[in-house]
């Protein structure tokens, strides 16, 4: 494929230089065409770039990112800035991250931190499908924390937006303020509801925020609280990657310290084909999408 392309480009360039010599008035037309072609090749050629990101002794990008996390942990908390990137070209929409997150955080029915929005584009036979995993954006300017009447939800020094379960009064104002509709209310539902006996897996505690949260009584936290993705803070603190990353079968997720120029994530987010959701809101999300 490459050879004829290069040839055609060479031919094109020759023609172009002739044209440039022939008359300056014609040149804008040709130069425009040339730009489009070279951009298309460069931006889409991502596989090669990932390998260049690896470097050193790494054969697995996840191990490199885990080392990025561990390196960041050695710094004071206010110098870390956690961020995530999701490659939409690689995401296959398998929901492995959704399920892993539910399992990791022992989420009850109706609470999901990482749904995957699936969109069909076009009409048969010209159809494609776009999958968009949607964790908390951990905005640099989170609108949700501003509105909390008791200051129970706030942005940590490392940029992770958290909810203090023991303070949250469950007014749900933050849920209305989030432009990404990320936040979830824990109604106290159980998977075993309706069964003649309690289901064992409902008794599993959640270890969010490095504490043990059980769900025995109504209105005992986290029941009656607003809940959200924490970038698996409890795992991060132990030097582990968020659970959604480790289970992604396509390797579509990247994570690390945005403040560390050597980290995989910092190298990814500076690319041209990286964007965020609802940029116009000015919330400065720290979850980036590679498109």
């Amino acid at each position: 494929m490459d050879t004829p392309k290069k040839n055609s480009r060479r031919e094109f360039l020759t023609k172009f230089s002739v044209a440039a010599l022939a008359g300056a008035t014609l040149s804008p037309l040709f130069s425009k065409e040339q730009d489009t072609e070279s951009d298309a090749v460069e931006v889409r050629n991502f596989t090669e770039s990932i390998e260049s990101l690896l470097g050193g002794d790494y054969t697995n990008i996840k191990l490199k990112m885990q080392d990025d996390v561990r390196r960041a942990l050695k710094k004071p908390v206010d110098q870390r800035r956690w961020g995530m990137a999701i490659d939409l070209r690689k995401c296959v929409g398998c929901n492995a991250c959704t399920v892993a997150c539910i399992s990791e955080n022992a989420l009850p029915p109706g609470v999901v931190y990482r749904p995957v929005i699936k969109e069909e584009i076009g009409t048969y036979p010209n159809v494609s499908k776009r999958n968009l995993p949607k964790p908390c954006m951990h905005c640099e300017e989170p609108p949700c924390t501003e509105v909390c009447p008791v200051g129970a939800t706030y942005k940590r020094k490392d940029g992770i937006v958290v909810v203090d379960y023991e303070t949250c009064i469950g007014c749900r104002y933050c849920m209305t303020a989030c432009p990404y509709e990320h936040r979830m209310f824990d109604f106290g539902e159980k998977y075993g509801d309706g069964l003649p006996f309690p289901a064992k897996y409902d008794e599993r505690p959640s270890f969010e925020y490095e504490k043990e949260w059980k769900r025995d009584k109504p209105e005992e936290s986290p029941i009656g609280n607003v809940r959200k993705c924490t970038f698996c803070l409890h795992r991060l603190e132990e030097g582990l990657l968020p659970q959604c990353l480790t289970t992604c079968i396509a390797g579509a997720n990247y994570f690390g310290d945005l403040n560390d120029p050597d980290s995989v994530i910092a190298k990814i987010v500076s690319r041209l084909n990286v964007t965020v959701l609802k940029k116009e809101m000015g919330t400065k999300p720290k979850v980036y999408y590679i498109i």
Binding site: E146, C148, P149, V150, G151, I169, Y173, D186
Partner: peptide, 21 residues
């Protein structure tokens, strides 16, 4: 409220001036 018995917090620890609530 999700936690009725924590309602007093709105008086003891209000998030002023940012929260309209």
């Amino acid at each position: 409220l999700g936690h009725m018995w924590r309602a007093y917090e709105v008086i003891t620890r209000p998030n002023l001036p940012s929260s309209m609530m």
